[in-house]
Amino acid sequence: MVNPAQILRDSQGRPMFAVLPIAEYERLLEAADEAAALQAYDAYKEAAPETFPDEVAGRLLDGEHPVKVFREHRGMTQSQLAQAAGLKQSYVSQIESGVRTGSVDVLKRIAAALRVDLNDLS
């Protein structure tokens, strides 16, 4: 069998370039893509991000307040969330109803209590 690669050398005989048949080049690209995809998948699995049911996503897409959606998903009452975040129940209620927006600090505390990223509440 003939070597599919042609090696081009410099004036001192050191390999500088390899010329491959296009089929071999495309095979190598596919193998690299597969390896990269496997590596990305492994990194994703290692990070073990939480996923949420379709119902949660649907409610968020329908415009329900994320604090309420995630609170109910976690099976918490407003009082329980307020206590976990160091807030008053009425403040949580006002945030969920849109009367108040909550400061970044308050939303961080709520996110921590709900075990979600702060970005999930925006």
Rank of each mutant, 00 (worst) to 15 (best):
M1Q: 10
N3G: 11
P4M: 04
A5S: 15
Q6S: 12
I7W: 01
L8N: 07
L8P: 12
R9Q: 14
D10M: 04
S11I: 11
Q12S: 14
M16C: 10
F17E: 07
F17S: 10
L20G: 10
P21C: 15
A23Y: 13
E24Y: 12
E26R: 05
R27E: 08
L28T: 10
L29F: 12
L29K: 09
A32W: 06
A32L: 10
D33R: 13
E34M: 14
A35V: 01
A35Q: 08
A35F: 07
A36K: 07
A36R: 11
A37T: 09
A37M: 06
L38Y: 11
L38V: 14
Y41L: 15
Y41D: 14
Y41M: 13
Y41V: 15
D42L: 06
Y44I: 03
K45V: 14
K45P: 05
E46D: 14
A48W: 11
P49Y: 00
P49W: 00
E50S: 02
T51E: 03
F52P: 03
F52H: 00
F52I: 05
P53L: 02
P53C: 00
E55V: 07
V56T: 07
G58D: 11
R59Q: 05
D62V: 12
G63W: 11
G63V: 06
E64R: 10
V67K: 00
V67M: 01
V69R: 08
V69S: 03
F70W: 00
M76T: 02
Q78W: 09
Q80R: 05
L81W: 01
A84L: 13
A84S: 11
L87I: 10
K88M: 09
K88S: 13
Q89K: 15
Q89A: 08
Y91E: 12
V92S: 05
S93W: 10
E96G: 02
E96N: 08
E96C: 09
S97G: 14
G98E: 01
V99G: 13
V99E: 08
T101E: 08
T101A: 15
G102W: 06
S103D: 08
S103V: 02
D105L: 05
K108P: 03
K108I: 03
K108V: 10
R109I: 01
R109Y: 00
I110C: 00
I110Q: 00
A111N: 01
A113E: 05
A113S: 03
A113I: 01
L114G: 04
R115D: 08
V116A: 00
D117E: 04
D120G: 04
S122V: 15
S122G: 09
S122R: 10
S122Y: 13
